[in-house]
Write a protein that binds this DNA or RNA. Structure first.
Lengths: 135, 135
DNA sequence: TTTTTATGTTATTTTTTCTAACACCGATTG
DNA sequence: CAATCGGTGTTAGAAAAAATAACATAAAAA
């Protein structure tokens, strides 16, 4: 519900995010620079991350490991956002289904997306990795 | 469950805790100095707070507003910790019961505690204020 | 009235983060 | 093969955030 609000609260500095995600500051900033995340800023311009941001970074990391590049990741994340939207309207599916993403599924998603900039493709998801920890 | 672990993860710096609790840094440090909280530290010695810490600070604040002093608050928090322990063993009670603490209840608790340093007094609780936000 | 308590304020130092620039290496491409 | 590009490492210098410590103070307690 307003769970979403909570998850979106900007809470921690980059140092913690580094530990949480095992990414370097350089990487995190680079991803931001390419529009993959949009952490908030303190009055003094320091980044402040939310749980959602960290979640997102974990996804980015996982997608990177699957060989995607910035553009690809951007697409996938964007699709997820759309899916998210749809799902809240429609309904929940089996818990398992949307927690793992096979290479084939991924490939398919990308294909669909790239070929016909289609909305509402397959609903498989990686989301909620950190969420599963910080419930 | 290991919810406890999650809540105990040291995540945010004092700046955020200040906003979350509306306490000044001075106050927060003072309470630590008096053993009311025990935030973790970064390698460079900066305080790192967990959700539990923030929760605790909110309780401290509320107790302060009720006129307790450091010693009194320490007692109450300690009792809560013991109660926590007991409760996990025993069982849950009505949700309402343990979320508000009237002045009389508080007075009684303190009385019991002070008179006969007794363990396991009344189980009324303040706990979980922040928890209710960041569930 | 003197003391104590909780908090404010200020000064100084240390830690953390920021941006920007340059370097590098593996994969692409001309 | 040589040049490019994409993701990351590294470094330097500046700025922000946080730490400790000391002194100040108003209200409460003794």
């Amino acid at each position: 519900m307003n769970d979403q609000i909570r998850r979106n609260m900007a809470l921690f500095p980059i140092g913690i995010v580094m530990k949480l995600t095992e990414l370097t500051a350089r990487q995190i900033r680079y991803y931001e620079q390419h529009g993959l995340i949009h952490p908030a800023r303190t009055k003094g311009n320091q980044r402040l991350f939310s749980f959602n941001d960290v979640d997102r970074l974990l996804e980015i990391k996982s997608l990177l490991e699957k060989g995607l590049n910035m553009a690809g990741i951007k697409q996938v994340l964007q699709m997820q956002a759309e899916g998210e939207e749809a799902r809240t309207v429609i309904n929940q599916q089996s818990e398992q289904k949307r927690n793992e993403l096979t290479d084939q599924e991924l490939h398919q998603m990308l294909k669909k997306q790239i070929i016909h900039g289609g909305r509402n493709a397959d609903q498989s998801m990686i989301r909620g990795q950190l969420s599963r920890f910080f419930h």
